[in-house]
């Protein structure tokens, strides 16, 4: 790591002011940031340590309307184990948190750190390569290079995938986030945290310099809602997904009444699939139906030279997710 000045803010406004300075970088647990700093891909002159606000920003609160408010510094381990997430409606979030990395990482990694971690693209994360997204080269190197873990849909001039497994789960639950910029707070849909068009030259999130996500809100879910998260990966531990799916469904009288479906790890941003989810409405759960939905979810897929497998595996993961909710 290159040397840096380490800043300990005592309040959110102080953290926001410090983070807005040129060369400053916000850090929570730092699991992803320290990794990139060790590789010298990231060389901030100042690191603003949000952990000094842990007392303020680490909590899971049940809201009066039975939604959840989760502090930005809440660890994945807390998400996995907290009784408030025990209900079937929050299954997707609990399962996604419990599958991330390793128990050792989950004991420190935070919910917002998971959402804002930088893509795992090996070209971007290697100091030996310069690519368009890293603003150090003329083109996406994975597009025509080693791309077995890269995007199969939703890409333009950069085929990285979004690495967060909490993102699809939270999007399936209609989550929102609160952020602080200076002394202003705003609450937006979580989908607005990610760029609409994931161009290489755009950041992987839409936050402004110095803007700090302070909380994630999981609103009250529809009555009798159940949700699940499933992913495919090469290793059972310390790995990122090759494909992922989160869904939330309400079944009443044997028929599916409402459904959300979100794909992860297949595009530069998490991919909500409203059209595919619509096929579920009014139907009785069956494998035939779920196959139809999985096909629809991957209809727009244009795989790269080495990741054709993702389409087939991804469809199986969609089916497995829907079965997990409805069985």
């Amino acid at each position: 790591m290159k040397p840096f000045t380490y800043i300990l803010p005592r309040s959110l406004p102080e953290a926001a002011t410090a983070a807005a300075r040129k060369g400053a970088q916000l850090k929570a647990a730092g699991i992803d940031l320290i990794d990139r700093m060790k590789e010298r891909i990231e060389t901030p002159s100042e690191v603003v340590n949000l952990l000094s606000l842990k007392g303020e920003l680490s909590y899971i609160k049940s809201e009066r309307d039975s939604g959840l408010r989760i502090g930005a510094l809440t660890t994945l381990n807390d998400l996995e184990l907290d009784a408030a997430l025990g209900a079937a409606q929050f299954g997707a979030l609990r399962e996604a948190a419990g599958r991330t990395a390793t128990p050792l990482v989950r004991n420190r990694a935070t919910i917002v750190g998971n959402l804002l971690q930088v893509t795992r693209c090996w070209y971007l994360r290697s100091a030996a390569f310069g690519c368009l997204h890293g603003k150090k080269g003329p083109a996406c190197l994975a597009m025509t290079g080693e791309n077995r873990y890269h995007s199969v849909m939703g890409y333009f001039d950069c085929v990285r995938v979004h690495p967060s497994n909490l993102a699809p789960a939270l999007l399936a639950l209609d989550a929102e986030f609160t952020s602080q910029l200076g002394d202003r707070q705003s609450r937006r849909k979580l989908s607005e945290l990610f760029p609409k068009e994931a161009r290489a030259m755009l950041a992987e999130h839409t936050l402004l310099p110095g803007e700090i996500v302070t909380a994630i809100h999981v609103p009250a879910q529809p009555a009798n809602a159940r949700s699940a998260y499933r992913e495919s990966r090469e290793k059972l531990s310390f790995d990122w997904a090759t494909t992922a799916c989160a869904a939330r469904i309400v079944v009443e009288g044997g028929k599916i009444r409402t459904a959300t479906l979100v794909l992860g790890a297949v595009a530069p941003v998490p991919m909500p699939m409203p059209e595919a989810a619509k096929l579920l409405i009014g139907e009785a759960p069956s494998d035939e139906l779920f196959q139809k939905v999985a096909n629809a979810a991957y209809q727009s897929a244009v795989p790269l030279s080495q990741n054709v497998y993702k389409v087939q595996v991804g469809k199986a993961v969609v089916r497995e997710t829907l079965h997990a909710i409805t069985r």
Binding site: P3, F4, T5, Y6, I7, L8, P9, R10, S11, P13, E14, A15, T17, A18, E46
Partner: peptide, 14 residues
């Protein structure tokens, strides 16, 4: 704590 002075505490390089 919100009324704390403007400059946060810091560790310089070194």
């Amino acid at each position: 704590l919100a009324q704390a002075p403007q400059e946060p505490k810091s560790f310089a390089i070194g």
